[in-house]
Simulated scan of single mutants.
Amino acid sequence: MDTTIRDIKITELGESKYIRPFSIVFNQNGIRRKWDCIKAHDSVSILLYHKDKDAFLFVKQFRPSLWYHETGGDTSKIDENTGFSYEFCAGLCDKEGLEPEKVAIEEVLEETGYAVPSVNYITSSFTGLGFSANRQSVFYAIIDESMKKGQGGGVDDECIELVFIARKDIYEFLYDESKPKGAGALFGLLWFMSNVAPKL
């Protein structure tokens, strides 16, 4: 898979099927205030532990907003590492009537190629509290090679690379700031190592 980023440019946001910007005006402590917000879909993320490999499975992908943060929008700064994040398998809850658990199972198959019969709920939290406050439900599943049914990598034009991190190296990975990851992944891994790993 060629994940090379080319011909990058920054444009104004037009119509979007994923987010809707709006403002909220309110009174607080006698002061009239205005807050800019974004309506966004809730989401799921799934921590995957491969028991045969004794490793965690992450998806590595290009995130334009991460690239922008890392480069300040300098379009001359493009390389194989800038803008790439290490994440749990994840997806948006954008299908009407589909429960988060079902979304999680679908995402695992699409992104990683592993068919899990079920996922285990950990907790949910809110992301982007300053502008979107959308809920993310966090799950985990234990996988093995008997569950491998496809190549993964996402659907349509997604470019997702699968990366295994050995359990023995996970704390080093957690604190390695050269491999960008979200706070949810940090929490999920620490929770798993404290609550599930001792029973394996």
Rank of each mutant, 00 (worst) to 15 (best):
D144M: 08
E87A: 15
A104M: 03
K53N: 06
E111T: 00
F62H: 05
F58D: 06
D157E: 14
G182I: 01
F187T: 03
G184P: 03
G130H: 13
V44Q: 04
K53Y: 10
V163S: 04
L186W: 02
E161G: 03
G130A: 13
R63G: 09
L189K: 02
L162Q: 15
D36P: 00
S76K: 11
Q28I: 03
E12N: 14
E161C: 04
A185Q: 07
N134P: 01
G73H: 10
V44L: 11
K34M: 11
E70D: 10
F164D: 00
I170N: 01
G97C: 08
A141L: 06
K51Y: 09
M147L: 15
T112P: 03
A141P: 02
R135Y: 04
M147P: 04
L47E: 06
V108H: 01
N27R: 12
D156M: 08
D42W: 08
T82E: 02
K39E: 13
V138W: 05
E70K: 12
R167P: 01
I170C: 04
K95G: 03
G73P: 08
Y140C: 03
N120P: 02
K199V: 01
D156R: 11
S23W: 02
D94I: 07
E12V: 12
I105W: 02
H69Y: 12
Q28M: 09
T3I: 11
E80R: 05
S146D: 15
K17R: 11
L190T: 14
Y49I: 10
S125F: 15
V59L: 07
V138D: 02
D156W: 08
L57F: 02
A104L: 00
I10K: 13
F173T: 05
G188N: 04
D36R: 12
A55M: 12
I122S: 05
Q61S: 14
G30S: 05
W35Q: 15
L162P: 00
I10T: 12
G30H: 07
I10Y: 10
V138M: 08
V138F: 01
T127Q: 11
V163Y: 02
S137T: 13
F84Q: 03
F56H: 01
H41G: 02
F22G: 01
L57Q: 02
S194M: 09
N195H: 14
K51C: 09
S132Y: 06
F22L: 07
L13N: 11
D74K: 13
N29Y: 03
H69E: 15
V163W: 00
P198Q: 05
E172H: 13
I38P: 04
I8M: 12
L47R: 06
Q136M: 14
G152V: 08
D94P: 04
N120L: 08
E101D: 05
K168V: 12
E111R: 06
L129C: 04
